[in-house]
Computed example of a mutant assay.
Amino acid sequence: MNRTRARLSDGREIVYYDEAPGRVPVPDPRGLPPVEPVCETRRDPLTGDHVTITAHRNTRTFLPPADQCPLCPGGPASEVPDPSYDVVVFENRFPSFDVRTPPVPPAIDGVERARGAGRCEVVCFTDDHSASMARLPVPRVRTVIDAWADRTAELSAMPEVAQVFVFENRGVEIGVTLHHPHGQIYGYPFVTPRTERMLAMAAARPGLFGDVLKAEREGGRVVASGEHWTAYVPAAARWPVEVHLMPHRHVPDFTALDASERDELAVLYRDLLRRCDALYGTPLPYVAGWHQAPVGEGRDLLRLHLELFSVRRAPDKIKYLAGSESGMAAWINDVRPEDVAARLRAVTAG
């Protein structure tokens, strides 16, 4: 992997991750004004959850035609000035968290407030607009993994960042705003509610992640496995399609994976995505979220793992989060996890 840094015309950083050396970045010709994000967090006094307020994101680009895609290289609307790239990462033009956001008063109507300081990045997996992560060659998936690890290390070193979340939203049913194959990385200024709950469970039960992995490997919901990783449908799956991918060794984040673990991950992750697309014979809308330990706490408790889920519950049906899920966070799944695991094992991932 060859890393090359540059700046866009508004001052945002862009980083190229190439499989061959020699890149000389093309200057951004757009002459954009400096980024002036206004990101704020407020603490819900009833739950303690952080809620982020980012009114400027309401104007972000929404499903443009292919010839105006900001992630395709070199075009007049492109965020990537170069005519081609392997993998590229840049600061989001419409961030949820940004260290440049101005100070805010410490409270409003008794509710705790803070600057939404942190970092949000866009990760483009390929310059091919019509591709997908599932259809990339294995070496390119490996480059993406190396980029995730490099960005995790850099964001974790920022004093404003408490947790790094790597994820991909795919499909209009999920709510994507750009079709080009890409993901995102959030450097949160707080530890997220789901991570706090997992840390509490792991603290109360030492060895929790190892125990869960052992039970799943001995159960009937394994989808695929190798020397270093296992993909399985969890017994208490919330979503109609949900698969977790967990390393056999306890590692807190991408930076701790060794070369052999990254090599196998590139193969197994692509295999899993291809199985998901084959499940209903059409590209599966999904969220693929990589859970990593927070920067400063719980690194011995939380194990890096993927949680991939989809709202599709049948070829022509979508699972909507209604009263129970959205209102009470009490999940009701319409599909047996054992059935989904069996179908994912049975499909051809070619």
Score class of each variant (00 low, 15 high):
203 A>V: 05
79 E>G: 02
124 C>G: 07
179 H>T: 09
102 P>Y: 11
82 D>G: 10
117 A>Q: 07
92 N>M: 10
197 R>F: 01
95 P>R: 14
75 G>D: 04
93 R>G: 10
171 G>T: 06
106 P>E: 00
169 N>Y: 06
111 V>S: 08
153 A>W: 03
152 T>K: 12
186 Y>P: 00
167 F>I: 01
138 V>S: 14
145 I>R: 05
122 V>T: 10
116 G>Q: 02
137 P>A: 14
121 E>M: 08
182 H>Y: 07
86 D>W: 13
172 V>R: 14
106 P>G: 09
94 F>W: 12
191 V>K: 10
178 L>Y: 05
119 R>Q: 10
174 I>F: 12
174 I>C: 08
148 W>P: 04
136 L>S: 10
167 F>R: 06
75 G>Q: 13
193 P>V: 01
103 P>A: 09
100 R>H: 11
123 V>K: 07
150 D>T: 12
83 P>V: 02
182 H>F: 13
104 V>Q: 14
162 A>K: 10
167 F>H: 07
177 T>N: 13
82 D>C: 09
92 N>F: 07
173 E>N: 03
166 V>L: 01
117 A>C: 11
198 M>C: 12
131 A>S: 12
201 M>N: 13
157 A>L: 09
145 I>L: 15
197 R>W: 00
142 R>K: 15
180 H>G: 01
139 P>T: 15
132 S>M: 05
118 G>Q: 00
103 P>I: 10
171 G>C: 04
181 P>M: 12
